[in-house]
Amino acid sequence: MKRVPIAIFLALAVLAATCAAGGAEEIGKAEQRRLFRDGARLWPVYCAQCHNARPGSEFAPYQWDAIMMHMRTQANLPARDARAVLEYLKAGR
C-alpha cells in the first residue's frame, strides 16, 4: 500500500517524459521582440523577489543559459517567463 504513492509519482514522471520535450524552439523575430519586452518588465521584479537583479553584462550568454535553467528550478518560474528574462539578459549585454 505504501508503494502506491511512489508508483503514482514515478508514473507521473514517465507520463511527463512522453510529453513534448521542453527544448529550444526556433522563435521568430516578432516573438523574440515580445520576449525581450516582457523580459525587461519581469527581470527587475522576478529577480528582486529574492535578491538584487543582476545585469546581463555580468555573465556570457552561454553562462546565462545555464544560470537561467538553475533559476527556473529555484524559483519555479513559468517557462515562457524564464525565456523572456533570458532573452532580456542576453540581448541586454
Binding site: 519555479n76 513559468p78 515562457r80
Partner: peptide, 21 residues
C-alpha cells in the same frame, strides 16, 4: 522532485508547485 510553474492570469500572476519523495 516534480516541480513547475505556470501563469494563471495576467503577466505576473503565477502559480508553482513542488512535490517530492
Amino acid at each position: 522532485q516534480l516541480r513547475g510553474g505556470a501563469q494563471w492570469g495576467a503577466l505576473g500572476q503565477d502559480i508553482d508547485y513542488t512535490a517530492w519523495v
